[in-house]
Amino acid sequence: MNKRFVNIVLRHLLLAFLAFIWLIPIVWLLVTSFSAYTGINTSTFFPQEWSLQNYKNLLFSADSVAQFPNWFKNTFIVACCSCVISSAFVLMVAYATSCMRFKMRKPLMNMAVIMNLFPGFLSMIAVYFILRTLNLTNNHWGLVLVYSASSGLGYLIAKGFLDTVPVSLREAAYLDGASEAKIFWSVVLPMSQPIIVYTVISSFLAPWMDFIFAKMILNAGVSSQWTVAIGLFNMLDRSLINTYFTQFCAGGVLVSIPISVLFVIMQKFYVEGVTGGSVKG
């Protein structure tokens, strides 16, 4: 009994320690965003003077450098659209390759692996010119396409998950006369919540993270069109960093908020998915 108690205490201490390490940079981000000094503070962890000025500047007094509300709106729209498209694509490909058998299945899967091997940014310039031909540069739809069009290639994790869905369930549905589409929609999808959550999260995040593609496609230099990533990255320019570093941090914090909310909401589904899994098991 005593040993068990020690075990539990140690376990929580370890977790607390790990969480501490994982959170240090995040806390630094948070406290720096409240700093009154606008450059990089290299001497102390906590700012010497606290202030809300960074948030105020970022949210209410947009200048040509910091147009955060616009960026946020742009990125949010792009993220939502590409999230819907990519999640759908990933699940569609995963279902087709996991639950169905057809002639081109293996060749297609091998092709997908091969294509994942190429360093993507080398072909960036070709993607750019394709978009320009379609008149989609400096256009948020162009960005959505870039983030979601090829997302089917990332189907492997979802396929791995669907592989664990018992065949017997689908067979029962076949016997009831359900079509493939119906099975996909009302048998397999409801059981795949964890992987849907995972797919949604990862495809929602991409537009918030990417600045290389985004900068290339939104190349007209109109800063109100930018996404958060380009805008924030731009604040670290040599001539701007000393005035905007703390606003950069504040921007980072603000970006994390919707993503955190997404995670918190998704965690609820997560647990439901888990119970669903145990029922079916």
Binding site: S64, I125, Y128, F129, R132, T137, M216, N219, A220, G221, V222, S223, N234, D237, R238, S239
Partner: peptide, 23 residues
């Protein structure tokens, strides 16, 4: 006349990606 942002130090990189679309 439309004004855009491009730092003097990175103008070359952006321009050479696609000269025809540059300012």
């Amino acid at each position: 006349i439309q004004l855009g942002v491009e730092s003097e130090s990175t103008a070359k990189d952006t321009v050479l990606t696609d000269i025809e679309a540059a300012a």
